[in-house]
Write a protein that binds this DNA or RNA. Structure first.
Lengths: 248, 248
DNA sequence: GAGTGGTCTAGACCACGGC
DNA sequence: CCGTGGTCTAGACCACTCG
C-alpha cells in the first residue's frame, strides 16, 4: 500500500498505515461524506474499503475518538461528533458556578453586523486584508444576572447568510447552528486568559463597577486542518463563577 | 483468568484484563518498586510476570502513557514519568510571555512555616482538624520583575523535613524535589481561575497598584489514588503574560 | 439472533538506540 | 548485533443494542 496521502511530509519519511487511514477518515469528515451525528461505516466495512485489517482501522478510529472527532458507542456504531448533544450545552465554556450547581445560562444577542475585518481579527482568522467578517455581541446570564460578555468574529465567506434573525430563532448551542447551517465544525480551540479592569461600556453591560476585575478570555477556534474560523473575546464576571481547568 | 484486583467495584461487574494489569502497574508505581526516572520492565517481561499476552500489557501501558504516568521511548524502554526533565521547567504552569519568548523565571522564596492547617486548607487537603501543614510563600520573576505570587500549602506529615534551607539549596523544579526527597509525585491537578483586585500586601509584592486586576489561580494537585497533596494559591500579573489553555 | 464495538491472543516484521 | 517499543495481521470470543 503506497502512500495514499498526497502530502509530502518534511522529516518523517515513514508513515504508519493507520495514520494514513486516519488521514483518509478525516478527509471524509471534511468533505461531508459523513455529517455530524451520522454513523460512519462499521470497522469491518472500512477495513474492506481500505484493504487493511480491522485492527488497523480500529487504531485510526481510536485516535480520532480521543481527539473528539468521533464517538464510539458499543453495540451501535461509531458516530461523527457533534455540538448538538453536549451534556450541558457549551462544550468549550469552562465557566462554572462556585456552588457546584448545574447553572444553565440564558443568552441575549446584542448585535450582529458585517464589516471589513479589523487588522488584528484578520490576522487571527488568516483573512486577506479587506475581506469581510461578521461580528456578534452577546450576553450570557445566570439567574438573570449578566456573567459573560462575548465579542465573536467569524469569517464572512462561509458565514454568508448569518443574520440576527437566524440567530435569535435558534435553540441549542451556537456551534450546532454553525455545523448544520454553515458546514463549519469547531474541533479544538486555544485560549489566552488575563485579568483586566472593566471599561465603561463593559462595566455597564455586565452591571459591575468601572474598573472591576474581569477575566478576559480570548478564544481562537479551529476546524479541520487547523484552519482558524472563530475569534471570540469574552469578559467573564468571576464574582460567583470561576474558570475551571484540568492539568495533567 | 479470575479477577486479580481485590477491589469490588459497585456497578461495572466486569473488568477488562488490561484494566486489571493497569491497576497492578499503578500499584507498583505507588509502592515505589519503580521510581521516577527508572525504566520499568520490558513489555515481554511484564507479559510473562502477569501471564498475559504482550498486547494486553501494551494496552495497559498505552493508557498510563497517555495519562502521563509513564513515558515510552522507542528502542530504549518505558520509563516512570518525572518532573525532572521537563521541557521548560514548570510542567503545570500555564503562564506564557505575550511575546512567544522562552521566558525563564527566577524564584524568590519569601517564607516557609509549619502550623495547624487553617480550616479551608484542611478541607481541601483532606486533613483531620488540628493536623499540621506547611506553608510556602514565593515569588516568580521574569526579567527581574515579579509576575507570580504563590501561596503553597502542603500536608505536614509527608513533608516532615521541608525547610527553607532545603528549598533554597535546590536547583530545578520544586515538584522534582518533592519526588526525590519526600516521595510525593504530583500526577494531575485542578485549577479554579478568577479575576481579583490586588490587596495591599499582594500589590506590594507584585509591584502593582492597589486594586490592579490579577489572575487568581487556585490549584489542587493530586498524587496516586486521587489523593490531594498540594493546595496552591497563585496571583498572576497578566500585564505582559497570559494563561494559555487548549480546549478540545 | 444479527450486527456493532471491545477484548485478548499469537506471531511476524519494522524502526530505533546502543553496545 | 540485539533488545526495545511500534505496526500489522488474523482469528476467537465477549458485551452491548436492537429488532
Amino acid at each position: 500500500m503506497p502512500d495514499a496521502a498526497p502530502v509530502a511530509e518534511p522529516t518523517p519519511s515513514f508513515s504508519p498505515l493507520y495514520q494514513q487511514i486516519k488521514g483518509l477518515l478525516v478527509r471524509s469528515l471534511e468533505t461531508g461524506e459523513w455529517k455530524p451525528g451520522d454513523a460512519i461505516p462499521s470497522e469491518m466495512e472500512l477495513a474492506a474499503r481500505f484493504k487493511v485489517s480491522q485492527g488497523t482501522v480500529r487504531k485510526a478510529i481510536d485516535e480520532l475518538a480521543t481527539e473528539n472527532l468521533l464517538i464510539r458507542r458499543q453495540g451501535k456504531g461509531t458516530f461523527v461528533a457533534t455540538h448538538a448533544e453536549e451534556r450541558v450545552q457549551y462544550r468549550f465554556l469552562r465557566l462554572r458556578p462556585d456552588d457546584g450547581g448545574a447553572g444553565s445560562l440564558q443568552r441575549r444577542l446584542l448585535d450582529c453586523r458585517r464589516m471589513r475585518a479589523p487588522l488584528d481579527v484578520a490576522r487571527s482568522l488568516e483573512l486577506k486584508s479587506g475581506e469581510t467578517a461578521v461580528q456578534l455581541r452577546r450576553l450570557l446570564l445566570a439567574d438573570g444576572r449578566p456573567v459573560v460578555l462575548d465579542d465573536i468574529w467569524l469569517p464572512g465567506t462561509p458565514f454568508k447568510g448569518l443574520s440576527i434573525e437566524r440567530l435569535q430563532g435558534w435553540r441549542g448551542p451556537m456551534y450546532r447552528l454553525f455545523e448544520t447551517e454553515f458546514g463549519v465544525r469547531m474541533i479544538r480551540a486555544e485560549e489566552k486568559i488575563r485579568a483586566v479592569g472593566a471599561a465603561e461600556e463593559e462595566a455597564e453591560a455586565l452591571a459591575v463597577p468601572l474598573g472591576a476585575p474581569l477575566l478576559s478570555v480570548e478564544r481562537l477556534s479551529f476546524t479541520y486542518g487547523d484552519r482558524p474560523v472563530e475569534l471570540r473575546r469574552g469578559l467573564y464576571n468571576t464574582s460567583s463563577h470561576h474558570y475551571r481547568n484540568e492539568l495533567s
